[in-house]
Amino acid sequence: MNHRHRIRIASFNLALDRAAPGQLAAELSAGGNRQIRQLVEILQRVRPDIVLLTEFDHDGDGRDDRHLRLFCDGFLAQGGKGLPGLDYPYRWLVPTNTGRLAPVSLTGQALPRLPHDGLGFGHFHGQYGFAVLSRWPLLFDGLRSFQHFRWQDMPGARLPLGPEGPWFTGEALDFLPLSSKNHIDLPVRLPSGRQLHVLACHPAPPIDEGPERRNSCRNHDELRLFHDYIHPGRGDYLVDDKGTAGGLEADADFVLLGDLNADPDDGDGFRRSIRNLLASPTLNYQVARGSRIPSSRGGYRLKGVSGRQGSPAYWTHSQGLRLDYVLPSRRLRVLASGVYWYPPGHPLGYLFWDKRGRPDRRASSDHRLVWVDVAVDT
């Protein structure tokens, strides 16, 4: 007889980016600080089984995971405030393009310089990196990554245009990847033996650009990469870092998650790409656009201040934007969802607000944790 098992999947931008390499590792080694302790408290309260952590600085290639192990074993696994510890025996620092210096300038200068001439924006390699934590085994034999897939190899790519033609030179496009960090498909083996494909990315934010809108164009196509990947036949052009072509198998169960830096109603980016993604028939409609969109009461504190068009219930960022997503595939049955965000005055409001009721990035993050519960056979 089959039984249903409830699993919780989350995405959380920790805002643990620091000004220099090794700074985050040093803070963790020194016992952490208020921000780190309260990020840990949020994770221990929500207790996801699988979680993507974005903006977690590392060495860039993910080879030195000592501070991730310390974060997991020395912080998350240690209980406090009446909360039991949270154990993640399986974890991975994902290699990233951020802060990897390009061989030639991407901005028309004589010599390439960080942060703007990184393959992904960053002052050092590994800034704004991300990690995956799981209670269940990560199946690296089935890993696919698109860290090195070139932007110009996407058919109909929305490459930015300057006043005199293409913004990037042909020399730059010969090596420039589409992914500003990485796009990964990492299967997880659930207790039943069933595989769940974790599709994770953190596209470039549509900011810090001129009229060419190079970051908005990149965000648009980074979202399109996974949109094409989850549609049978549409991602045939994609070639992963091992040289394997094609998209995700049609019968695969997956969850697409991350800080996508795109809001379907507001913000500075091109909204068509995120709207198209959310309308994909391969996704669970209720979570993407229906009655199960993750929500909270916390964002209502910002209503009328930001001038936004979207509903505050769905906001995941302190500037009044829906940027963070957990999007299960169509066949997965969703049991519940939410944005972990309480309003000022709530007993747990200190995790998000200062004493005047204003968003406080130092309290935890400028982003909110998003979670979805799905049922799987055991």
Score class of each variant (00 low, 15 high):
residue 3 H to E: 14
residue 3 H to I: 13
residue 5 H to F: 04
residue 6 R to G: 04
residue 8 R to L: 05
residue 10 A to I: 07
residue 10 A to H: 05
residue 14 L to P: 04
residue 15 A to I: 13
residue 19 A to S: 14
residue 20 A to I: 09
residue 21 P to E: 12
residue 24 L to K: 08
residue 31 G to W: 07
residue 34 R to A: 08
residue 40 V to H: 12
residue 47 R to K: 15
residue 47 R to A: 15
residue 48 P to H: 04
residue 52 L to N: 01
residue 54 T to G: 02
residue 56 F to K: 03
residue 57 D to G: 06
residue 62 G to F: 00
residue 66 R to Q: 06
residue 67 H to I: 10
residue 67 H to C: 06
residue 69 R to A: 02
residue 69 R to H: 02
residue 70 L to M: 11
residue 71 F to T: 07
residue 71 F to N: 06
residue 74 G to H: 11
residue 82 G to E: 03
residue 88 Y to A: 04
residue 89 P to S: 07
residue 89 P to G: 09
residue 90 Y to G: 00
residue 94 V to Q: 00
residue 99 G to N: 05
residue 101 L to D: 07
residue 104 V to P: 02
residue 111 L to F: 15
residue 114 L to R: 10
residue 122 G to N: 12
residue 125 H to T: 14
residue 126 G to L: 05
residue 133 L to H: 05
residue 133 L to Y: 06
residue 139 L to T: 07
residue 142 G to K: 08
residue 144 R to Y: 02
residue 147 Q to H: 02
residue 151 W to M: 03
residue 155 P to E: 09
residue 160 P to E: 05
residue 160 P to S: 10
residue 166 P to A: 01
residue 173 L to C: 08
residue 178 L to K: 14
residue 179 S to V: 09
residue 181 K to I: 01
residue 182 N to S: 12
residue 182 N to V: 10
residue 184 I to G: 01
residue 187 P to T: 08
residue 187 P to Y: 08
residue 189 R to Q: 09
residue 194 R to L: 03
residue 194 R to H: 05
residue 201 C to T: 15
residue 203 P to N: 05
residue 207 I to R: 14
residue 209 E to A: 11
residue 209 E to K: 13
residue 211 P to L: 15
residue 216 S to Y: 01
residue 217 C to W: 03
residue 223 L to Y: 00
residue 223 L to V: 03
residue 227 H to I: 02
residue 227 H to E: 06
residue 229 Y to V: 12
residue 232 P to C: 11
residue 232 P to W: 14
residue 237 Y to W: 15
residue 240 D to N: 15
residue 241 D to P: 01
residue 243 G to Y: 10
residue 244 T to G: 08
residue 250 A to E: 11
residue 251 D to C: 07
residue 256 L to F: 05
residue 267 G to V: 01
residue 269 G to F: 02
residue 270 F to Q: 14
residue 272 R to A: 14
residue 273 S to K: 15
residue 275 R to F: 04
residue 279 A to V: 07
residue 283 L to S: 02
residue 284 N to W: 01
residue 284 N to H: 07
residue 288 A to W: 00
residue 292 R to W: 07
residue 293 I to T: 07
residue 298 G to S: 09
residue 299 G to S: 11
residue 301 R to Y: 05
residue 303 K to H: 14
residue 304 G to S: 13
residue 307 G to S: 08
residue 307 G to M: 08
residue 313 A to R: 14
residue 313 A to K: 12
residue 316 T to K: 06
residue 319 Q to W: 08
residue 322 R to D: 04
residue 323 L to R: 10
residue 327 L to Q: 01
residue 329 S to N: 05
residue 329 S to Y: 03
residue 332 L to S: 00
residue 345 G to S: 11
residue 346 H to F: 09
residue 347 P to E: 03
residue 349 G to F: 03
residue 350 Y to P: 00
residue 351 L to T: 05
residue 355 K to T: 12
residue 356 R to E: 15
residue 358 R to K: 14
residue 360 D to G: 09
residue 360 D to K: 11
residue 360 D to Y: 12
residue 362 R to V: 12
residue 366 D to L: 09
residue 369 L to C: 10
residue 378 T to C: 09
